[in-house]
Amino acid sequence: MEVRTIKVFTTVDNINLHTQVVDMSMTYGQQFGPTYLDGADVTKIKPHNSHEGKTFYVLPNDDTLRVEAFEYYHTTDPSFLGRYMSALNHTKKWKYPQVNGLTSIKWADNNCYLATALLTLQQIELKFNPPALQDAYYRARAGEAANFCALILAYCNKTVGELGDVRETMSYLFQHANLDSCKRVLNVVCKTCGQQQTTLKGVEAVMYMGTLSYEQFKKGVQIPCTCGKQATKYLVQQESPFVMMSAPPAQYELKHGTFTCASEYTGNYQCGHYKHITSKETLYCIDGALLTKSSEYKGPITDVFYKENSYTTTIK
């Protein structure tokens, strides 16, 4: 009895394709271990004539594949690729409408935090270190965002349907971005203890939790000093293409032309909904596939993004 075979390709990165001759009487799992086709788990399936010449994702289970996976995804987590594939199996079914010149995501599976993050990423200057993220990001900007969303979920250790947080998501993504040249110098002034300067680099240099107003941050924000008295913390120097200011959701007025974009969060910790506000020729609110415009805006804002380049204080 002759062994019926077909020729397929296996890959971990969709760049390096490895030619395989597979036995049609055995499952993919018996031949390769966990195997995925377009995100779908085909591990328990036997090869079919229609699979001839198709590319299958496999887990990096030998040295060659491990090197290829690390170079593309910059992670050695053995569960990463499987999590990416199972997320992709959902995100490829989502709709990605162009809204006001940006790629958004039609609401499904509690994905409003991903839509808000995706919209924000198209408006701030950011370059990702893992080629996987950078490639998928370019495709997302062009309207094909399924891979990018699935990668975000995998890097953030999230599953489809789980509630997510924009600030946490951005923080994970910033860790995989090139923020080497970003720098922030802060000064804390206390009447009792004097003053202390701190220099922050990388992710810490672009994120701040405690106030939404970048102007206020430049002037000074009140913080408790270690001595128990009130101290003032203010920005001395900022070198970065953008800054992200966050605070627990509270009524906040966004003035046209003073910011790049913002995240609105309605609801409580267990259950809520994100919308995205962007400042173009007027203010726009993007909620999944829905767009509304207004000249002014007041609502429960939790993150505001500002364009920056270089700032030095005039406070002496």
Rank of each mutant, 00 (worst) to 15 (best):
E2V: 13
E2Q: 12
V3A: 12
V3G: 11
T5G: 11
I6A: 12
K7E: 14
T10F: 03
T10Q: 09
T11Y: 09
T11M: 03
D13M: 01
N14S: 14
N14Y: 03
I15N: 13
L17H: 11
H18A: 07
T19R: 11
V22A: 13
V22G: 08
D23Q: 13
M24L: 14
M24P: 14
M26D: 14
T27G: 07
T27A: 14
G29S: 07
G29N: 13
T35Y: 05
L37G: 07
L37N: 12
D38H: 11
D38F: 08
D38G: 08
A40Q: 14
D41C: 12
D41A: 13
T43N: 07
P47F: 05
H48L: 12
G53V: 08
G53E: 12
G53D: 10
K54T: 13
T55V: 12
T55N: 10
T55C: 10
F56L: 11
Y57L: 08
P60S: 07
P60Y: 04
N61Y: 14
T64W: 07
R66W: 08
R66L: 11
V67P: 04
E68D: 01
E68M: 04
A69S: 07
F70P: 02
E71R: 08
Y72S: 10
Y72E: 06
Y73L: 03
H74E: 02
H74C: 06
T75H: 05
T76A: 14
T76C: 14
T76F: 14
S79P: 11
L81T: 08
L81R: 02
R83G: 03
R83T: 02
Y84D: 04
S86I: 10
A87M: 03
H90V: 11
K95W: 12
K95G: 09
Y96M: 01
P97M: 15
Q98T: 13
V99E: 13
V99N: 09
V99R: 06
L102M: 12
T103M: 03
S104Y: 01
K106R: 15
K106G: 10
A108T: 08
D109Y: 02
N110A: 03
N111K: 02
L114F: 03
L114N: 02
T116E: 03
A117T: 08
L121D: 05
Q122H: 00
Q122Y: 04
Q123C: 08
E125Q: 14
L126K: 07
F128V: 04
N129M: 06
P131S: 03
Q134R: 11
D135A: 07
A136C: 05
A136S: 10
Y138A: 13
Y138D: 13
R141S: 08
A142T: 14
G143A: 03
E144T: 07
A145G: 10
F148P: 05
C149L: 08
C149M: 10
A150G: 02
L151E: 03
L153T: 00
N157E: 07
N157Q: 06
N157V: 04
T159F: 08
T159Y: 09
L163G: 14
D165S: 15
V166T: 08
E168Q: 15
M170P: 02
M170N: 00
F174T: 06
F174N: 03
Q175S: 09
H176T: 01
H176G: 03
L179T: 07
C182I: 05
K183S: 08
K183Q: 04
K183G: 07
V185D: 01
V185H: 00
V188C: 08
V188P: 04
V189Y: 08
C190K: 01
Q196E: 10
Q197I: 10
Q197T: 14
L200Q: 14
V203D: 06
E204G: 11
E204C: 07
A205W: 04
M207D: 00
T211W: 04
Y214M: 09
Y214C: 03
E215G: 06
F217H: 01
F217M: 07
K218G: 00
K218A: 04
K218P: 01
K219L: 10
Q222T: 10
Q222D: 15
C225K: 02
G228D: 03
K229E: 15
Q230F: 15
Q230A: 13
Q230M: 15
A231L: 02
T232M: 12
K233W: 08
L235C: 05
Q237E: 11
Q238I: 03
E239Y: 08
P241V: 00
F242P: 02
V243D: 01
M244P: 02
M244F: 03
P248R: 15
P248F: 11
P249C: 06
Q251D: 12
Q251C: 07
Y252W: 12
E253K: 11
F259G: 01
A262K: 05
S263C: 13
E264F: 08
T266M: 07
G267D: 15
N268A: 00
Y274W: 00
K275N: 04
T278K: 03
T282C: 10
Y284P: 03
I286H: 07
D287I: 06
D287K: 05
G288C: 01
G288T: 11
L291H: 12
L291K: 06
T292E: 12
T292D: 09
S294V: 15
S295W: 11
E296K: 10
K298P: 04
K298E: 14
G299Q: 02
I301Y: 01
D303C: 08
F305G: 00
Y306L: 05
E308N: 00
T312P: 10
T313V: 12
T314W: 11
I315H: 15
I315W: 15
K316R: 15
